[in-house]
């Protein structure tokens, strides 16, 4: 009796999740595993009928190939700079836009727009800003400053990060939602105790926003490690162009190996290594969260 009831529960559960599950299995899980299988072969895109198993050779190449390690290093650097700063900017903007100021909706739209603009247009726009006689250098010229080769070797990564930070308003919606969720009585209590606005921010707002920051941090890390189109288009014109070396990020390397040089097996191995790296980082952040993320309920994620 109990058995049938339980079975029924299971059946109902799986029936309800089945639309998602079926799509995930066929378009998610199967391709993933198939990709994993191919990363152990010498697949080049056209040799399906002559596929050879090559063991861990592609994975060995990932770690022995100085380029992939260089690219991974640069990617981690960009992530390490981009993510914290964009978190800070995102939160700062949200706090400002949570105030009762004139033209609020206009400001909110303005800061959110970068997240809606297609990435290709964004890059093209910044290319004009950064180029030799571009907007930024013209401004420098007016201010009697030396022009800077923004897209050159020394500043290319800076330029890339500035461009990425332009999109920091992307977390605005969720940040605002988080801010609205902070009970007003906490602020009132703080005011009665005579807390300054800065004090209020650090003792009320920030602790109650940590779960939002935590979410943004994970999404930011994942997104940042997967950047590839921005560096390519910042110095090139087509997807197969090489970005300038300091902006040669990990996914650019993988994309080039697959689509420019038909090294599908190696490219897929690169992707799986990245997947594992992201997984590890995420686990690490999750682990760390118990020390700094505050939940009003005692429940952990």
């Amino acid at each position: 009796m109990l058995q049938t009831k339980k079975w029924r529960q299971y059946a109902t559960f799986y029936a309800f999740v089945s639309p998602w599950l079926i799509i995930f299995i066929f378009l998610g899980l199967f391709p993933l595993l198939y990709g994993l299988y191919l990363s152990f072969t010498n697949f080049t895109g056209f040799n399906m009928n002559q596929l050879k198993f090559v063991g861990f050779s592609n994975y060995k190449t990932v770690f022995l190939d100085s380029e992939s390690m260089y690219a991974l290093g640069r990617t981690l650097l960009v992530t390490a700079i981009n993510v914290p700063i964009s978190l800070a900017i995102g939160l700062f903007l949200a706090v400002l836009l949570n105030l009762k100021i004139k033209g609020l909706s206009w400001w909110r739209t303005a800061f959110y727009i970068p997240s809606v603009v297609p990435v290709v247009s964004t890059v093209l726009m910044w290319k004009f800003i950064f180029s030799g006689d571009g907007l930024l250098n013209t401004l420098f010229d007016k201010l009697q400053l030396q022009p800077i080769n923004w897209l050159g070797y020394e500043y290319a990564t800076t330029a890339l990060i500035v461009m990425l930070l332009w999109g920091a308003g992307g977390s605005l919606l969720i940040n605002l939602a988080g801010l609205k969720g902070i009970p007003a009585d906490l602020y009132e209590a703080a005011e009665i105790d005579g807390a300054s606005p800065v004090r209020k921010f650090f003792t009320v707002t920030l602790p109650l926003m940590t779960h939002i920051l935590f979410f943004n941090l994970i999404m930011g890390i994942i997104g940042s490690l997967q950047i590839y189109i921005q560096p390519i288009l910042l110095s090139g014109k087509t997807l197969l162009d090489s970005p300038i070396k300091p902006n040669y990020l990990y996914l650019v390397h993988a994309f080039q190996q697959i689509f420019a040089f038909q090294r599908f097996g190696y490219g897929l191995a690169l992707m799986w290594v990245l997947f594992i790296a992201i997984l590890l980082l995420t686990v690490l952040v999750f682990y760390s969260s118990r020390f700094w993320v505050y939940y009003e309920t005692d429940q952990e994620v």
Partner: peptide
């Protein structure tokens, strides 16, 4: 949250699968 990486990864691999299946 791992879904995003899963989906983007899947998209790339899906292409490969298309290619291989084919």
């Amino acid at each position: 949250m791992k879904k995003r990486i899963l989906t983007s990864l899947a998209a790339i691999i899906a292409t490969c699968v298309l290619i291989t299946g084919c």
